[in-house]
Design a protein around this nucleic acid. Structure first.
Lengths: 210, 210
DNA sequence: TGTACATCAGTGAACGCGCGTTCACTGATGTAC
DNA sequence: TGTACATCAGTGAACGCGCGTTCACTGATGTAC
């Protein structure tokens, strides 16, 4: 995530794909800094990368397609982030809490990218005019899939009294999403420290006795 | 909330303020339809109202100021909506559930306006370049204040084991916000019916035994 | 080994559009005398 | 009761800007013969 405008030479033959990566990285940087989807303009991205505006067309049909590429990348990043956090833990309760904590941390540390993932009119398979729809796989195989698995492990271990892992995962997900969104947007609220606020919410919704 | 472009005559003397209301209504309509804050352009609003673009300046310094007026209006609408829902109920548990249900209903039925209220860079007192900051009063006296009161009533009635009404209200608020945001954005998810999903979440977070 | 050619990875100028903003103005209506 | 004037509630034309998109082009590099 460098994001500086650097002098760049022409790519060697066969490495035209490098420019594609540079374009996505520049768009990501613009989104991180500006926050708004409208910050990603074709000319703005080109300036950032250090190329002429029309040079983007061989790689992306529209600015929206560039944003979509950032969305796909960010879903993968978020999934890896959560996956890494629970990777070396055994206890199902600890795994669940650690995964949720990682999810929320990612959202708080990357509020603009996180907001992009779940903004209206950007849903899985939905409205976006050009971008290819995200498959259910993109979500199921990602952070949400890990959450369902984490809840299921707690149910099987007998520490959660929940009856449906997917329904319980949805409960937890909406709470995590609310925490991320509102902490990011309403930073003037007297928020309790995360370690005080989050575990009771998560355990209550996971139907785990504290 | 009419929103049609109508022929309009000049306002009589002393009624210049009417145009202000028309401008805010047009901006609200654009936000409802388009969803994005960038849909509110000075020229677009003027077209919608049926006036020349410069005629907006005596009433608003910038498009952002128009959006801010919609935000203020919407906060009041949301507060009234919740207030009406709990108005004729006595039982504290019923009042809390009814108020929460109304909040979520407002959000689901007005997803774009709701999203505007809590979008990043639009927080109480924050970043917006021109708009006057929302006072704490705007929130405290509104829906969030009612929520704190509702939780407090349940604690005093002995049906909630929560120890802090404000902290518990925050827990409930983030969950409601998550429900509204994600139901609006991710309509492909297999959402349970609201009556099945919401009360258990709200009661669990309110620390009320079911 | 040379050389003509194709391809790749872009460039630079130009276009039309909607935008925010400015400026001088217009014409109805109330008010002072 | 008339009339000059101030004010209110706007208008219309023009500007410069950044945008997406198009078009013909350029120059390095690999490849066929």
């Amino acid at each position: 995530m460098t994001g500086e405008t650097t002098a760049r030479g022409r790519n060697p033959r066969g490495a035209g794909g490098r420019l594609r990566d540079d374009i996505v990285a520049a768009a990501r940087d613009l989104l991180v800094e500006q926050g708004h989807e409208t910050a990603v303009t074709l000319r703005g991205v080109a300036r950032r990368v250090g190329i002429a505006a029309p040079s983007i067309y061989p790689h992306f049909d529209s600015p929206e397609a560039i944003v979509q590429a950032v969305v796909v990348e960010t879903f993968h990043t978020l999934g890896s982030y959560v996956s890494d956090a629970i990777g070396r833990l055994d206890d199902p309760r600890e795994r669940l809490l650690a995964g949720c904590r990682a999810y929320i941390t990612f959202g708080i540390e990357n509020p603009n990218l996180y907001g992009l993932l779940f903004s209206r009119n950007r849903q899985l398979g939905g409205q976006s005019p050009e971008g290819r729809p995200l498959s259910e796989e993109d979500l199921r195989g990602g952070a949400f899939g890990l959450l369902v698995g984490g809840v299921d492990d707690c149910i099987r271990a007998g520490i959660s009294s929940a009856t449906s892992a997917p329904a319980t995962a949805i409960d937890i997900w909406v709470a995590m999403h609310g925490i991320v969104s509102l902490r990011g947007a309403q930073y003037q609220m007297p928020w309790p420290p995360r370690d005080v606020m989050e575990p009771p919410i998560l355990l209550a919704l996971a139907r785990i006795q504290p």
